[in-house]
């Protein structure tokens, strides 16, 4: 069965973003600073200022050449934390108060009333006992092979190679999810893992040692 209808539904959502990349950058950075002030993040505000950066489409000489060819379209990356494909906790990241940690990268284009959200990846890594090691929300560029498989907007639920459809979200919404949600509920006791889960983790560990 095709998931085409699901994907169409997700991608059809119109996101109301600022018109300028530097405004979105500022909104994301300030959301993190407020979370730090509220002790939801361990990362202090001055470190947040270093980690959350707006990277414009330079170098200038290339941009100028493209401008002459009328191809320059004002694309930007907004990044939070260093690139970290290996999930190395020693690489600079944004740290949550419960031990979870995350980073993100967003690609936007300044075009019209709202920014054009082209691609993103937001990945959070959880502390032990949270049921899965990491969760990533990806938005691929249009016309990716996954879009043909109905999954331009998808999540990775603790596995690099298994994808699940995900709603298209604004960067502010995903940050809110990472900062305030996806936490162990304070009013709920941790449950003991079932025998199934214990065996599952043991066998996963054995597979990794092969």
């Amino acid at each position: 069965m095709s998931l085409d209808a699901v994907q169409k539904h997700e991608i059809a959502r119109v996101l109301e973003l600022p018109s300028r990349a530097r405004v979105l950058h500022r909104e994301l950075r300030n959301a993190l600073v407020f979370a730090s002030n509220a002790k939801k993040l361990w990362t202090p505000p001055d470190k947040i200022h270093q980690l959350v950066q707006l990277l414009p489409e330079l170098p200038q000489q290339i941009a100028q050449e493209l401008q002459e060819r009328e191809l320059r379209d004002g694309a930007f990356c907004i990044v939070g934390g260093e690139k970290n494909q290996g999930r190395d906790p020693n690489i600079a990241h944004l740290a949550r108060s419960d031990g979870a940690w995350f980073d993100f990268s967003i690609t936007v284009r300044e075009r019209g009333k709202w920014l054009d959200l082209l691609a993103y990846d937001f990945e959070i890594r959880f502390p032990p006992g949270m049921g899965m090691p990491f969760l990533r929300f990806d938005l691929n560029l249009p016309a990716h092979r996954n879009e043909e498989r109905d999954m331009r907007s998808h999540s990775h639920l603790g596995c690099e190679d298994i994808l699940s459809p995900a709603p298209l979200m604004t960067p502010q919404e995903i940050l809110a999810l990472f900062i305030d949600e996806l936490r162990w509920p304070e009013d709920r006791k941790r449950r003991d893992p079932t025998d199934f889960e214990v065996r599952w983790f043991e066998q996963t560990h054995l597979l990794a040692r092969r």
Binding site: C77, V79, Q85, S105, T107, L118, A119, Y120, D121, D138, L139, N140, L141, P142, A143, H144, R145, N146, E147, R152
Partner: peptide, 8 residues
């Protein structure tokens, strides 16, 4: 590939 890493 159209993964976000390549967009960046």
């Amino acid at each position: 590939p159209r993964d976000p890493e390549f967009a960046e």
